[in-house]
C-alpha cells in the first residue's frame, strides 16, 4: 500500500485556479510533494530536471497541450514510465483514444470530486495509505 506522502506529483494546467483546486485535493488525500507548471513546456522542463512519480495534466493548454506533454514524456527514456493522468473537460472519444495510444494511465473528467481524483490515482498506484 503506497503512501500518498511518498509520491511526488507535478500538476500541469494553464489555469491557476484549477492548479490550486487539484493541489488542494491532493493535499486533502495526503500528498505532500506537489509542484506545479503553467503549461506543457514548463511541465516537461520540470519533470526532465526533477522526475515526478505522477503527472496530472490538463489536456487543453496553449503550446504543448496535454497530449503533446504525454508524448514527450513517453519518448524520453529517463522519465518515460512516469504515471500520467489527464484532466479533460469532455469525453471526446478521439482525444481519449489518442491519449491511450500514447500511454495515458487514467483520466479525470472535470468538474471532479476529491473522491474521484483519489479513485483515479489509486487505479494507477494501488490503494493509498
Amino acid at each position: 500500500m503506497p503512501k500518498a506522502s511518498s509520491i511526488s506529483v507535478l500538476i500541469a494546467d494553464d489555469q491557476p485556479s484549477m492548479r490550486s483546486l487539484v493541489r488542494a485535493g491532493l493535499e486533502q488525500i495526503g500528498f505532500a510533494d506537489v509542484r506545479e507548471a503553467r503549461d506543457g513546456e514548463e511541465a516537461l522542463r520540470s519533470v526532465v530536471a526533477k522526475p515526478a512519480h505522477l503527472v496530472i495534466s490538463d489536456f487543453n493548454m496553449p503550446g504543448l497541450d496535454g497530449i503533446g506533454l504525454l508524448r514527450s514524456i513517453r519518448v524520453h527514456p529517463p522519465i518515460a514510465k512516469t504515471a500520467f493522468i489527464m484532466l479533460t473537460g469532455r469525453a471526446d472519444v478521439e482525444l481519449l483514444k489518442r491519449a491511450k495510444e500514447f500511454g495515458v494511465n487514467n483520466f479525470v473528467m472535470k468538474p471532479f470530486t476529491v473522491a474521484t481524483l483519489k479513485e483515479r490515482i489509486e487505479a494507477v498506484f494501488g490503494r493509498l495509505s
Partner: peptide, 14 residues
C-alpha cells in the same frame, strides 16, 4: 479552499 463545491465555479470559468 479546495473544497469540492468550488469545482463548479472553477469549471464554469474555465
Amino acid at each position: 479552499p479546495g473544497a469540492d463545491h468550488l469545482r463548479y465555479g472553477v469549471h464554469s470559468m474555465e
